[in-house]
Design a protein around this nucleic acid. Structure first.
Lengths: 180, 180
DNA sequence: CCGTTTGGGTCAGTATCATTGACCGATCCG
DNA sequence: CGGATCGGTCAATGATACTGACCCAAACGG
């Protein structure tokens, strides 16, 4: 008998024939578990296509994120980019440095504040970003088509609701005015 | 003039006053960029709460995923779990091993096939999983409430659409019948 | 019954993404 | 001028993942 350590095994959650009163709570719990699963599988496959391309260039998701957000906001400062990504300076540096050395991104000193380094994609950087973009476009567009326009609107509302304060502010800044 | 290397700077994408014919294409492009942003920010904050708890226990997201899926399918085999997570045996081992040593997960030999190791949460494991679950529940439930039931349905449809073949099969198995 | 396949575990080495804490130079601003 | 800010950099660490090779034990099939 292989049991020198008799651990308590948790009971499996019930899946049917519930006491009437708990029904609503149970549904909410299942709803949540469903959401966890959806987000795990969905996000993974959303990024999978771009990850594949990146792997072949000894880059990773972090590089893609920089390309994406710099492309979205040309002239963004390093500080603002850090705020969007919510990573440390060092983590960004390790990704941004090679991107600049390899000619995907350039920085130019700010005119108003010369301490700032304004980031922008080169043509080469924009081309790579576009390649990654097109790959994800296929995935997302198919999901949008299958789901329909109303579903897309719902998807947006829920995803936005998942964000915290800080992310929502960054998000609104990105989607909002071209530049302050 | 600090320009020994004159890189081409890509033009910023236009944001208004488009040639009429390209309008639709432009909207689709913006739609996609919006989706990318939503998924990045949304997923990050969805996992942030649980990540915080895990960090305090020298665990990471990978541990959470194991607890989640084992909790969802008690008695799951190692092979099936590998299929769901889509990682290598070695990667799973490095996470599963400590979880078993620390008494969060137990394995029992399969009755039909004694090569199999059937995984289950201990009470301790179920308690931790619940703690993580409750944390994410707050985030998701608030997003659901804000967005409304119709939006939730749309969210589900789109997330499911993002999945590839393999993920969709795993997903359907999870949400489907209690056990084969 | 014996050989092959399958389920699971393990070793060694490598890569990416992230962290902390400290420190520096250049620039801005009161 | 002096402090605050923007950006870069050092060193060390940890989590997650990968490949390829190899092993044991149990199941399966001719």
């Amino acid at each position: 008998m292989p049991a020198p350590r008799q651990a308590q095994i948790a009971e499996a959650p019930e899946r049917s024939t519930l006491p009437a009163g708990r029904n609503l709570l149970f549904l909410r719990e299942e709803e949540l578990r469903l959401a966890q699963d959806l987000l795990f599988f969905g996000y993974r496959d959303f990024t999978a296509g771009a990850d594949e391309i990146l792997a072949g260039m000894s880059m990773g998701r972090a590089h893609h994120r920089v390309l994406h957000f710099v492309g979205r906001r040309p002239g963004i400062t390093v500080g603002d980019l850090l705020g969007i990504l919510a990573i440390t300076k060092q983590s960004l540096g390790r990704v941004l440095q090679p991107l600049m050395e390899d000619g995907y991104v350039v920085q130019t000193p700010g005119r108003a504040d010369r301490r700032q380094r304004l980031l922008a994609l080169t043509d080469k950087g924009a081309a790579l970003e576009r390649r990654l973009f097109e790959r994800q476009r296929e995935t997302v567009m198919q999901a949008y088509r299958e789901a329909g326009p109303a579903a897309v609107e719902g998807f947006r509302r829920v995803m936005r609701g998942l964000m915290g304060e800080q992310a929502r502010a960054a998000f609104d800044m990105l989607e909002g005015p071209p530049a302050p």
